[in-house]
Design a protein around this nucleic acid. Structure first.
Lengths: 181, 181
DNA sequence: GTCTATACACTGATAGAC
DNA sequence: GTCTATCAGTGTATAGAC
């Protein structure tokens, strides 16, 4: 049984946006791959931006949920390590990884997009939860980098002759050291 | 005495590309701000991509120079720390900082651009120089992040109520710890 | 050498027919 | 739900004025 058109549009769009870039991917391209016309896309999504919005929604919700959880806990080393593990587990799901990669690669193109602004705010809030009020500049910067380390681990896949598993474990170890600094 | 048109095009283009994104900035926009027509831009640059290429050239050359320098030295902790300091000094110059920021923000849009591919290769080579042959996965990932830390310090300017100087010093300290891991 | 005028194929988007 | 037709605006290109 075939999926509905809306879902197929999202899948093709996410793939092409990530591979070629958001602006470099035309609606005609997406439509042709699906065997429909541009106008058909406009029945399912109001604008091109709207396709992006639909992709980002779930991801933002999960990060905000993670922030909520962190706020119920004291800002201790234990909380920080738990937060890292929850974030990594979340990132490990293929659909989320794809969306995150897409967003990282298309920052400027999507700069003014309301959903993207929400996403950025959520990530900032998450970073804030990794530092206690009296943290030094070195601690703040080092902890911001912990999340970057987890992303970097995912992008590095199949490089340097390391296995995917080695990279995942190593980047988690680096992230852990960064929040413990 | 007024600068020549070519230089003014580069300045306006770099600013608009960074602020709004590469694809979101039209040649008409650049031309209007300079008080000329689109066609005038085509006298000075063959294509829109060509404007980017001219901006990136110097930056790539300097990174490759840094790689050359590193290759003449043993891969020791001392070399790594020197490399960081040279890279940071290089990054501190306003023109380079702007170009680097522009490139980071427009990765996908410029994906296939030959100059960008050279830039990416140069950064990979630089990262490679930060690890000795027998380095563990944790060491490799941690050292790649050192360069990211220096960039992050620059982007973070005027946030969290920290002064620019505090941030610069702190991110250098984090970078140093990352290469010493 | 420096620029203007003009044209071309393509883009995101809309209106209306089936 | 999908189509055809059409719009203004885009990057690109060239012919020709000075």
């Amino acid at each position: 049984m075939r999926e509905d058109t809306r879902t197929r549009i999202q899948e093709v769009a996410l793939r092409l946006f990530t591979e070629q870039g958001y602006e470099a991917t035309s609606l005609r391209e997406i439509a042709e791959e699906l065997g429909v016309t541009k106008a058909a896309l406009y029945y399912h999504f109001k604008t091109k931006d709207d396709i992006v919005a639909s992709l980002v929604d779930l991801r933002v919700a999960e990060i905000e949920e993670l922030v909520e959880w962190a706020r119920t806990r004291p800002r201790t080393p234990e909380t920080r390590r738990s937060l890292l593990e929850r974030y990594a587990a979340n990132l490990a799901r293929p659909s989320h990884l794809e969306v995150t990669r897409f967003l990282e690669r298309n920052q400027t193109a999507l700069r003014a997009h309301p959903k993207l602004i929400k996403m950025r705010e959520a990530m900032l809030a998450l970073t804030a939860e990794l530092s206690e009020p009296g943290a030094t500049p070195v601690e703040r910067i080092s902890r911001s980098l912990a999340l970057v380390a987890l992303h970097a681990g995912k992008w590095m896949t199949a490089q340097d002759g390391l296995t995917e598993d080695e990279i995942a474990k190593a980047s988690m170890e680096v992230a852990r050291r960064l929040v413990d600094m």
